[in-house]
Design a protein around this nucleic acid. Structure first.
Lengths: 258, 258
DNA sequence: ATACTAGAAAATGTCAGACATTTAAGCAAG
DNA sequence: CTTGCTTAAATGTCTGACATTTTCTAGTAT
């Protein structure tokens, strides 16, 4: 896949911006897994950048698992399963994408569906006053910016902050790091769903119930409330069909036990 | 914190090795969060390396969230909460550590305790023939190398492979990526517990039960079996006290619902 | 004395060019 | 057909210079 003229860059760009352009080229499917990636010198020519800058950008892509490089052989795009979806840098790159990567969005949402209710349960067990303050600030921010299309970005940021505060309230460093995954998922939601007023009102109410359950230290209630927030989200994304099955934690029928 | 003479490097080291040495210096507490990190030129002198190589190594630490850099001000170690624990590179760095980072090990184990039973449940719903083959190979590897102190590393690798296979069998890319967390946790276990023969036998049996439950597509059984593997692990690590409470998924008593 | 400004110093960021190393392909001799 | 040499192509590294950002300090005007 040659460098198309779609990829442009301001003349005074730094390595971070170039990395962003290239990463989004991969995330948007311009280069696909298995494809060869342009050589350093071609990138230098195309973007009128020094080799040093190009190499720094490629180092970022490498550390995110997007490409693999080998002296003498070149660079190529790695399989999706090797991408470091939990690298915070990836969240930034995914967030600015004009059209989100469909498979990744499904995978991330499926993960949230399976994990977030449990995280809410942990949060109800561990949250302290600071966590509750964060949740409250985020919820108020969502409420203030609700319904105004010109403030939808702001609304999305508060939405992200709310969910990140839940992960953080688990008081576990690993779960907390996972909060970075939320941004691309939620931004895509805001941009691609027609928020009807009553849907928004309903969403806010469901968020509020999660916060209340955490405040009252009711783990099971928090779990169910978090599942219902995601159910609402699934509806807004048009994924409602199988969402309800996965988010409920009703024991499945099964054969004879061991 | 000056550069002590503890930090040495073979004369023909590349950026990756230097990054490893420096990262382990941070992970082992030689430099603590908030501390200033040595300047580029000091590192060049100390390790007899070019500035380019030093900069590449520092870029790795930056992308892992271990340090923060700013033109004119220098570099310093970031707070533990900002470290990218889910970066696969971090797992490599943590694994080779002579003495594991106690807090990180606790955090990672607590995460596994809360997540892995659920992942096993997902695996029981989604595993295919290839996943089962991976689980079986890993279990056989564990069994073959059991009890022989000279093959404890091999045993640990198969142990890692078994648990990674569970995450992978969830058939979700995010959970799959999280399998990288397992290595440092399991290696630390092997190195710091006196494996008595009966404990090992018991551990193997518990692993086998997880695999059987996944094979038979029994999610609830798989969840419980995975919790019991972790319970065994907690005993071997000397953390057994509160482990059983967290891994069981018995509903907690709670106040009035919303 | 105090506040503002200019300049120097220190640190990281970038550039340019040369050279080193790794890999793959082609070609020729056996 | 195989082996080994040569060449080309790509990434990796080194060196030295310069650019930029930030902080500290000294000096000056009010």
């Amino acid at each position: 896949m040659p460098l198309s003229s779609m990829f442009t860059l301001s003349p005074d760009a730094d390595a971070r911006e170039l990395a962003t352009v290239l990463a989004r080229g991969i995330l948007s499917g311009q280069w696909r897994p298995g494809d060869g990636f342009p050589r350093e010198l071609d990138l230098c020519r195309h973007f009128d950048a020094s080799r040093n800058l190009v190499r720094n950008a490629l180092a970022s892509l490498t550390s995110a698992g997007l490409i693999e490089r080998s002296a003498g052989r070149g660079s190529w795009v790695r399989e999706i399963g090797d991408w470091h979806l939990l690298d915070p840098q990836m969240s930034v790159w995914m967030t600015g994408l004009e059209a989100p990567h469909p498979q990744l969005m499904r995978e991330i949402f499926a993960f949230r569906l399976s994990a977030e209710p449990h995280v809410a349960e942990l949060a109800a067990l561990a949250a302290d006053a600071e966590d509750l303050a964060r949740l409250e600030r985020a919820l108020h921010g969502m409420r203030d910016s609700a319904g105004d299309p010109s403030r939808s970005n702001e609304h999305a940021e508060h939405d992200v902050a709310f969910h990140a505060a839940i992960y953080r309230a688990s008081h576990n460093l690993v779960w907390r790091q996972m909060g970075h995954l939320l941004r691309p998922s939620i931004i895509a939601l805001i941009q691609h769903s027609q928020h009807q007023a009553n849907a928004l009102e309903d969403s806010l109410e469901r968020h509020r119930r999660v916060m209340e359950a955490i405040r009252l230290r009711q783990p099971r209630t928090a779990r169910l409330a978090a599942a219902q927030v995601l159910e609402r989200t699934a509806i807004d994304l048009g994924l409602a069909s199988d969402a309800t099955e996965m988010s409920s934690s009703i024991p499945q029928p099964q054969g004879p036990s061991l």
